[in-house]
């Protein structure tokens, strides 16, 4: 898939967030207990920030950058991700990746709000021929 093409993800579900609890070992109750989340001032359970970063990792793979092609992957978590959100990943600098080996990624929700941003440094041998 071309780096200039956005990656669309299926709607985030409570079941998916529970699956991420199982994978990551992060069982903070705000991620799986709706009552606890509401008592904590949240509308309902929320997704892990690391799930957002993981989806950007999925986008990287779809763009042709597997884990073995990466040097560093740095993410900032900006907004909560809730069940029902539809997320989209974009690369903000597709034309510069070949020369700079730096990718600037953004994950946004259906309202266009950026929920996670990331900077990825690519290994020299990890560059694709046609980003």
């Amino acid at each position: 898939m071309m780096l200039s093409q956005p990656i669309l993800f299926n709607e985030i579900t409570k079941e998916q967030i529970r699956d991420y609890c199982e994978a990551s070992g992060d069982h903070n109750r705000i991620h799986w207990d709706s009552d606890f989340a509401r008592e904590s001032g949240l509308p309902d359970v929320i997704a892990h920030g690391m799930l957002s970063m993981g989806l950007l990792g999925e986008a990287l793979a779809k763009w042709g950058f597997p884990q073995t092609s990466l040097q560093t992957f740095e993410a900032k978590f900006k907004e909560m991700v809730n069940p029902g959100d539809k997320l989209q990943a974009v690369c903000r600098n597709p034309d510069e990746v070949r020369s700079s080996r730096i990718m600037r990624l953004s994950l946004s929700n259906q309202l266009g709000t950026e929920v996670c941003s990331a900077t990825v440094k690519i290994l020299p041998e990890g560059r694709p021929s046609d980003p």
């Binding site: 892990h48 920030g49 690391m50 970063m53 990466l70 560093t72 992957f73 740095e74 993410a75 978590f77």
Partner: peptide
């Protein structure tokens, strides 16, 4: 959790 970095 506000930021996360991995170095490979």
């Amino acid at each position: 959790h506000v930021s996360q970095t991995f170095e490979y």
